[in-house]
């Protein structure tokens, strides 16, 4: 935290990055990065949930912004999306924690 840095405010949310001093000396990775199948599937699911009125983009963004700062910067772009989609669907009661836990157990092969 640096309250004297102009344009920097300790009340700033961590995703609100415009002009933030600690990133000014970071180079930009300009190389092309192909999206993975996982990335494209997450993107597609978000669109389907939006089109069917289950969850809006604004809600996706709220959920992304709710990820704690260290995690936010560690997770990949679409990993943040998955976390937010899960957060929103749980909050809205579209899926329950029990259902998710059972599905995770089934994936690991130790359920049912």
């Amino acid at each position: 935290m640096n309250g004297t840095e102009p344009g920097e405010n300790p009340k700033r949310a961590h995703h609100d990055l415009g002009g933030v001093a600690k990133f000014l000396c970071e180079t930009v990775d300009t190389a092309p990065h192909a999206l993975t199948l996982f990335d494209r599937r997450v993107d597609a699911l978000r669109q389907i949930l939006g089109a069917s009125g289950v969850m809006r983009v604004d809600e996706l963004r709220r959920g992304i912004e709710a990820i704690p700062a260290a995690e936010y910067h560690r997770l990949s772009y679409y990993q943040r999306w998955v976390r937010s989609i899960a957060d929103n669907l749980l909050r809205k009661g579209v899926v329950s924690a029990e259902e998710l836990r059972a599905a995770l157990a089934a994936e690991r092969g130790d359920g049912r």
């Binding site: 996982f38 699911l45 069917s52 990993q79 998955v82 957060d87 899926v95 998710l100 995770l104 994936e107």
Partner: peptide
């Protein structure tokens, strides 16, 4: 703790639950 599940596994679980509900 559920949200902190590795994203790939969490995504697969979400898809399974949503598919079972006929949502995707």
């Amino acid at each position: 703790a559920l949200l902190e599940t590795p994203a790939e596994a969490l995504f697969a679980a979400l898809l399974a639950v949503l598919a079972a509900k006929g949502m995707v």
